[in-house]
Design a protein around this nucleic acid. Structure first.
Length: 400
DNA sequence: GTCAATTCACATGAAAGAGACCACGGTCTAGTG
DNA sequence: CTAGACCGTGGTCTCTTTCATGTGAATTGACGA
């Protein structure tokens, strides 16, 4: 190892870290007190209360933007109920499922299979007819008298992919159950989600609704202060740091998760640059780094075809002032494919890939009409992507 | 000059196909007592 | 006789292709002033 590096590492090891407990900044960390959510937690608990008398509570629908404490608050409430039920011997089963998890619970089959697994059944990942799975699930619920509360986080992801069929079946399953019942709690980031639902599902799912408002800058400051007292060593934060993180996050619709991440990265950057304190400039750097990392990560994890498409986009737009269009990208893309031996996709598919890349925030693409000269997507690759480093990553990825 | 019709270059939708997984049940095979 | 290997069938899931339809404004061309 190079002497320089050794020196650095020695210095690094002997120096005191700014952090005393990094875990408190992780999204999975569960604080003992949840700030600024008391009233909502109380309401939720009241709605669910009948379950303790083995009466079916109303289905509950919860919405609010990301990082507004939805998941955290609900988990807090349900944990409370679980404990209470356990101490009073109430047969209550609370199942929390995140519908976004790929290959676990993002389709009808997988969701029901996952539910059955929660009851201790072993279900193959695929291979059985869907109604078979429903039967298994039904039987295991009906096996003994019990109350089931089903929390479906990111429920919008589920219906986006599979339609509202599943939800309809789940809300209706109570009609056939005699000993037990299932209450649904749906959580969604998408405020308009309910309106896109099938009306039958809509009315039964949202018997009760709760909205999690975004945190304002002061509330985020409270949260950050609380966490940093736990996570950072004493007197390692410049006074402006927390307000700045809070301000950034409040601007992005009050996302507390993001604020915490920002603070953590800023701390890490300060650590690495071996300064004794976290300064506001570290926050700026952190903001930039998060952005960059997110995009690079997204690029790296894309499937090959998408990478080839992105490479075509970047290559065609490099050195050009004007935005480029789908047709040009597709021409270039076909060339790339013949060069690399990749099977070229149809333009139809490429069009979808481009809009997917846009959704991921990697590029900007919007549909414009050029009148007589047709209708197409105007694609802009940000300057930060038009670097040799990015192109190299992509080139390697598609073996060019 | 005005206005509706036309036209371009794709976008967008729906449906269906291909191929990878997988479970299940039946048949065959080889090893065991 | 039996455990395990080996099909064939039928199911899900993801990624694509195929076919069909939609779309917004620049351009065109007819019309009237």
């Amino acid at each position: 190892m190079q002497q320089e590096l050794v020196n650095f590492l020695e210095g690094f090891a002997s120096k005191k870290s700014i952090f005393v407990n990094k875990k408190v900044f992780q999204p999975s960390y569960k604080p003992t007190t949840i700030l600024h959510r008391n009233d909502i937690i109380e309401q939720t608990a009241k709605i669910l209360a009948p379950v303790l008398k083995l009466e079916k509570p109303s289905n509950l629908f919860i919405y609010g933007k990301t990082g507004t404490g939805k998941t955290l608050s609900i988990k807090d409430v349900t944990d409370g109920f679980s404990k209470l039920a356990a101490s009073k011997n109430i047969p209550l089963k609370i199942i929390y499922i995140n519908c976004k998890l790929k290959r676990v619970s993002d389709t009808e089959y997988r969701l029901i299979a996952q539910l059955s697994r929660e009851f201790g059944k072993t279900i193959p990942a695929t291979g059985l007819p869907t109604d078979e799975i429903y039967k298994i699930f039904f039987n295991v619920v009906e096996e003994s008298e019990k109350a089931v509360i089903l929390v479906l986080d990111e429920i919008d992801q589920l219906t986006k992919k599979t339609g509202s069929e599943v939800l309809y079946n789940l809300t209706r399953i109570n009609e056939d159950l005699s000993k037990s019942f299932i209450s649904l709690i749906g959580i969604s980031n998408d405020l308009n989600f309910v309106d896109t639902l099938d009306p039958r599902v809509k009315s039964s799912l949202s018997e009760e609704e709760l909205l999690f408002p975004p945190y304002n800058a002061f509330q985020i400051q409270d949260i950050l202060t609380e966490r940093s007292d736990l996570g950072f060593a004493k007197n390692t934060l410049d006074s402006g740091v927390i307000p700045k993180c809070a301000a950034y996050a409040a601007r992005e619709h009050g996302d507390a998760r993001r604020a915490l991440e920002l603070l953590r990265i800023a701390g890490e950057l300060a650590n690495r640059s071996s300064s004794k304190k976290v300064a506001t400039r570290h926050v700026d750097e952190a903001e930039e780094k998060i952005d960059r990392d997110r995009i690079l990560d997204a690029i790296r994890t894309q499937p090959k075809q998408a990478q080839a498409a992105l490479f075509s986009i970047i290559s065609t737009s490099v050195g050009k002032q004007n935005p480029i269009f789908t047709g040009a990208v597709y021409e270039f893309y076909k060339e790339i494919c013949t060069k690399t031996g990749l099977r070229p996709l149809t333009q139809r598919r490429l069009s979808d890939i481009i809009s997917e890349l846009d959704m991921l925030g990697i590029i900007t693409a919007r549909v414009i009409s050029k009148g007589r000269y047709g209708r197409t997507r105007e694609i802009v690759a940000p300057k930060t992507l038009q670097t040799d480093a990015v192109r190299k990553i992509l080139k390697d990825a598609i073996n060019l």
